[in-house]
């Protein structure tokens, strides 16, 4: 099966599978980040493009419009001769019109995928259960409970962060961009039979939290609700260089009645300055 790469939580992986293709969520390695050095281009975006170049054809890539930088990444992919690319328009409002628009976009995506696979989509193969929650890690006494938010945090970054936290902190809530689909609601089996595109659109658009959603307070409300059920001592916001959205969030997080916030601009492996800030943050949390 041809792999279909994507890196956005709003891409329904089940639709890829239903079209007979293999969905692959991108996970950057440190090398991808090291290659990301273009002034003005978000490192997460550039790491994605770099990671795609390393794949062995044939493969397909789904980009989304969730941020302007990723929207332009699709242009860059095409400009560099990339094949089998599809740009999925993800609305940032969540009303009925946005659902209709997103449903139509998903229909277009399905047609793109079916052209690649050569056979029709089989919606009856889609599991309607809610995504498996990553859940809270068992909390060990005396460790600071940390909520993680921010741009995509890849496995190599997460491992480095957990290593740096060591025995002084535990991540109890991961709400970074490549982990938020775990919060999506289950699909309604009856609604899937009626119109799978509309049901997928509604489930993804209305229940996956995103800082891009407008009005913007919806994200903060969601975060505050999460923090009412998961007690945390501090919030770590990870953002990539040249990402405007998360840079804009930092100030607003600090304005809200939330636990202390540490913002780290983290490119691949932890930088000395970021580690020092993390040390100070843990110290401030009493660790």
């Amino acid at each position: 099966m041809m792999p279909v790469w994507y890196n956005c939580p709003f891409v329904p992986a089940e639709l890829i599978s239903a079209c007979g293709l293999s969905s692959r969520r991108f996970d950057a390695d440190a090398g991808d980040f090291c290659a990301a050095q273009t002034e003005g281009i978000c490192f997460a975006v550039e790491a994605f493009l770099t990671g795609m170049k390393k794949q062995t054809p044939p493969y397909a890539v789904i980009f989304t419009t969730l941020c302007d930088q990723m929207r332009r990444a699709f242009d860059l992919y095409q400009a560099n001769g990339g094949k089998n690319g599809f740009l999925l328009n993800v609305p940032v409002t969540t009303g009925p019109d946005a659902i209709s628009l997103f449903a139509e976009e998903l229909r277009q995506m399905k047609q793109f995928l079916c052209r690649l696979s050569g056979h029709a989509a089989r919606f009856n193969t889609i599991h309607t259960d809610a995504p498996i929650s990553q859940g809270s890690k068992p909390h060990k006494n005396n460790r600071a409970k940390i909520a993680l938010t921010g741009g995509p945090v890849y496995a190599c970054q997460l491992a480095a962060l957990e290593h740096s936290l060591g025995s002084r902190g535990t991540i109890v809530l991961n709400a970074t961009e490549n982990a938020v689909e775990q919060f999506r609601r289950a699909l309604n089996p009856e609604a899937m039979k009626t119109d799978p595109y509309v049901e997928l659109a509604a489930a993804y658009l209305q229940t996956i939290p995103s800082i891009r959603t407008r009005p913007g307070h919806l994200f903060y409300q969601w975060l505050e609700t999460q923090l009412q059920t998961t007690a945390v001592d501090g919030i770590i916001l990870i953002r990539h260089p040249f990402c405007d959205h998360w840079r804009g969030v930092e100030h607003q997080l600090r304005q809200r009645p939330l636990p202390p916030v540490l913002a780290i601009e983290w490119n691949g492996s932890p930088q000395a300055a970021a580690l020092s800030r993390l040390e100070a943050f843990l110290e401030m949390l009493g660790q």
């Binding site: 941020c67 328009n89 940032v92 946005a98 407008r214 913007g216 959205h245 100030h251 607003q252």
Partner: peptide, 24 residues
Amino acid sequence: DDFSVAAQRVESLGHSIFWWEMPH
């Protein structure tokens, strides 16, 4: 993105905004 963030900041300052969706 710059404008989207700036407009959101304006809204967070108490200026209500009617948002409309512009598709790509």
